[in-house]
């Protein structure tokens, strides 16, 4: 698969300013902008980095340039949500998609382990798509838990938070210049794990229509807080209540910015 991707990247590079992908050197692996003439034998697919955020930054810095990106399923979904919020321009992006393995899908509880190129102006997928993996069992177990049990669970988890902001920093959908999480109106400045988890609840609300389940936030969390359980629940709700699936359809507008007349709500009885 890597060879196929490299071949495709090599073919496309002459017409692009560069391709965002991971580069492996002696000292480590990290995002890199491959340009024509670069050594593509250094292009690798692991580990995970938020490449969509790199694309966004490059496109903003170079508003005329066309880039390519080597993206897995969740990266492509993230790019879809970013496009809707003017963080990337799909017209200036060539998507080199690749499929994750069944093992990887299981590890991430990923429902869609291959990029969906529908709606993308220019895209290509390498690899044979595998079936989606079942959801995180913790999400199902959640229904069984009493309010007291849920409270105990999250109190224990949130007490570990060291306020690194890593979950926000790594998130491709967190791009606001001014962040509510840094506003002392909402989140206490300078306090580690305050008793009421404003930080996490505010972030969960903000993720509701954006989270594409890339799970980078959980991977980056030094306190190992299972953040995606909360985000999975919110994503499920937004599907059930507003009929919206983040990252699925580049043409579907984000639901919370629409009026009822735009047809984004199943019926208000259900909501109240």
């Amino acid at each position: 698969m890597r060879e196929q991707i490299c071949k495709l990247v090599a073919e496309k590079l002459p017409e692009l300013a560069g391709v965002v992908a991971l580069r492996q050197t002696a000292v480590g692996t990290a995002p890199y902008l491959f340009r024509e003439g670069d050594d593509l034998s250094q292009l690798v697919l692991e580990p995970r980095y938020p490449l969509p955020s790199v694309v966004s930054m490059l496109q903003k810095r170079y508003p005329e340039a066309r880039f390519g990106v080597v993206a897995r399923g969740c990266d492509a979904r993230a790019l879809v949500e970013m496009a809707k919020r003017n963080q990337i321009d799909p017209e200036r992006l060539y998507l080199v998609g690749f499929t994750c393995s069944a093992e990887q899908a299981a590890e991430c509880y990923c429902a869609a382990p291959a990029p969906d190129t529908a709606g993308w102006p220019q895209a290509m997928v390498v690899g044979v798509p595998v079936a989606g993996a079942p959801p995180n069992p913790l999400v199902a177990q959640y229904e069984e838990m009493s309010l007291a049990e849920r409270r105990a669970f999250w109190q224990q988890q949130f007490a570990k938070c060291i306020k690194c902001y890593g979950c926000r920093n790594i998130c491709p959908e967190c791009f606001c210049e001014a962040c509510a999480l840094e506003d002392p109106l909402w989140v206490e400045a300078g306090m580690l794990a305050p008793p009421f988890p404003m930080f996490h609840l505010v972030r969960a609300m903000h993720m509701a229509s954006r989270c594409v389940a890339c799970r980078q936030c959980e991977l980056v969390c030094p306190a190992h807080i299972p953040l995606t359980v909360l985000y999975d629940l919110m994503r499920r709700d937004i599907g059930e209540l507003l009929g919206y699936e983040p990252g699925a359809d580049i043409a579907a507008a984000p639901p919370l910015s629409l009026t009822l007349a735009d047809g984004m709500v199943h019926g208000q009885d259900q909501l109240l």
Partner: peptide, 13 residues
Amino acid sequence: FPDPQHPISRGSL
């Protein structure tokens, strides 16, 4: 960016 392959920071900071 953090580095997911580092033995101490393991993708966190």
